[in-house]
Design a protein around this nucleic acid. Structure first.
Length: 460
RNA sequence: GGACGGAUAGCCAAGCGGUUAGGCAGUGGUCUGCAACACCAUAUAGGCGGGUUCGACUCCCGCUCCGUCCUCCA
């Protein structure tokens, strides 16, 4: 089966054919670096990593670009409110520039921990101000812009099919509008360039043909994707929230300027739902990867957790569900370890797994096949070899896993020796008491045929 | 309120117009001094009300609830 992907623009699963058959261009919307990213953000990058690895498995080369939004993203997407970077600078005491560096680095650390392959190009909005100004100038020359007292705006009514990606009902939007649209001519118009406010000095601002200010949020993606991937490239990714505004506006800009709809495929990762709270960063309460690690989960447990749901379904996060993933992954690791050296992979299993992934990245179904293999009668070397091939996509570091080889405190070792003595004397009560003491020190005992094993409690 | 999506067993989560998804938990068993680990086996489904059909969890309509955007999101 050849690769098929769901395209939000056409709203259907269709065969993926690269525009240039040597290399697939992917642009993935990156974070606004005013705070740490949360595990919901990371779910989207895990989905994009899966996409990339499946493209590799299909023999394609990939040119992957991720942007870093370090200016211009306002606290309201309706082009009002403050720049998130300026707000973040005030909160932390760092300059907007330091803030961007700090959270960009933190974001890239999360990538490494989750085995997410880095993009070929990281690009920052503030490094591409000239390109953005040139793009806006081009839109102005072609008659798609107008000026208000606070900026240069895109005139969405000039396009016949504005909003097609999100199937927007413009009249409905107008009727249901809940916000003051200011001087904008239409609710769907958006800022290309915002003027610096007269009463305050911004940390991030630049001169432009229209006056001192900063670029709007959407223009960076159009300007940078053109620069690194060309006017029309293969795949544009992002979170589901980008469908109605951000991606809709990127398409409008590029369509107006270049006459293309920017990307051949639009893929969107769906949200992670929290048990009883919103995941939004602005709420201040959000779960980071670091928080998971503090609670004793290895990052790859979260990666496995995300693989159990299809990228186009919203997924419910809870600690109970994360525990389920930890248990399952632990069993997989330990089974794979017990199989020893790899032999030859099973062609049939490999094919079935690939078929699932080529069917719009259906990883949940692929995992069902994985568990079928684990429980099958295939010889251990076949199981091991097959699983290791799959791990190029799963990226769970299956080969590297070892049963706990722990540094055991002398205190614990002494208790274990005492318990062994008690067991030899059939002093079961004494042995059980010692087991409890050891448990309080964070270790679990497993009496096997060839002796007693120690495990750190709750550890994968 | 408007637009666009969704609702599957205790929890998470797939496919499918008729034939076992899978994982976790639970239960029974093997193992164990007892446990734990591991392994084997296994019950419970498809929001509500209509319709189409020989047959609907799957298609259509209405309602309810949830999510996304319009108000902070990936």
């Amino acid at each position: 089966m050849t690769l098929r992907l769901f395209d939000t623009y056409e709203r259907e699963v269709r065969p993926f054919v690269p525009l240039d058959n040597r290399e697939v261009g992917i642009y993935a919307c990156g974070p606004t670096v005013y705070n740490f990213v949360h595990i919901g953000n990371l779910r989207t990058y895990l989905f994009e990593d899966l996409l990339k690895r499946v493209l590799f498995a299909n023999g394609y080369k990939v040119n992957h670009v991720i942007n870093i939004t370090d200016v211009g993203h306002l606290t309201s997407d309706a082009d009002t409110g403050e720049d998130k970077m300026e707000v973040g600078a005030r909160r932390t005491g760092m300059s907007a520039w330091e803030l961007a560096d700090f959270y960009t680095a933190a974001f890239q650390v999360d990538f490494t921990k989750l085995n997410i392959l880095p993009p070929d190009i990281w690009c920052r909005a503030t490094d591409h101000i000239e390109e953005q100004i040139a793009f806006i100038k081009d839109l102005e020359d072609k008659g798609y812009t107008y000026q208000t007292s606070d900026g240069i705006y895109f005139d969405s009514q000039k396009l016949d099919d504005y909003g097609h990606l999100a199937r927007l009902d413009i009249e409905g939007l107008k009727a249901g509008a809940r916000v003051d649209q200011g001087e904008r001519r239409s609710v769907t118009d958006f800022a290309l360039w915002k003027f610096s406010p007269q009463e305050e000095k911004r940390q991030m601002e630049w001169d432009s043909p229209w006056g001192r200010g900063f670029p709007g949020w959407h223009i960076e993606c159009s300007a940078m994707s053109v620069k690194y991937l060309g006017d029309y490239f293969d795949i544009h990714c992002g979170g589901e929230d980008h469908i109605p505004i951000h991606h809709t506006n990127e398409i409008a800009q590029t369509e107006a300027s270049r006459g293309t709809r920017l990307a051949n495929f639009w893929l969107h990762g769906y949200f992670l739902q929290m048990e009883n709270a919103k995941m939004a960063k602005a709420s201040g309460e959000f779960v980071t990867l670091e928080r998971l690690i503090e609670k004793g989960y290895t990052p790859l447990v979260y990666r496995y957790f995300c693989l159990t749901a299809h990228y186009r379904s919203q997924m419910s996060f809870s600690w109970e569900n994360l525990n389920a993933a930890r248990t399952a992954l632990g069993r997989l690791y330990s089974a794979a370890w017990s199989w020893g050296e790899p032999g030859e992979a099973s062609k049939i299993y490999l094919q079935r797994f690939t078929d699932c992934l080529n069917d719009d990245l259906n990883m949940p179904r692929a995992l069902a096949i994985l568990w079928e293999l684990v429980k099958s009668d295939e010889p251990d070397p076949v199981k091991k070899a097959t699983l290791l091939v799959w791990d190029e996509i799963l990226a769970l570091d299956i080969q590297a896993w070892r049963p706990d080889s722990l540094e055991i405190p002398e205190q614990v070792n002494e208790l274990v020796r005492q318990r062994e003595a008690a067991r030899e004397n059939q002093d079961w009560q004494g042995a059980d008491k010692l087991r409890e003491q050891i448990a309080r020190l964070g270790f679990t005992l497993e009496d096997g045929r060839d002796g007693t094993r120690l495990k750190r409690s709750e550890n994968v």
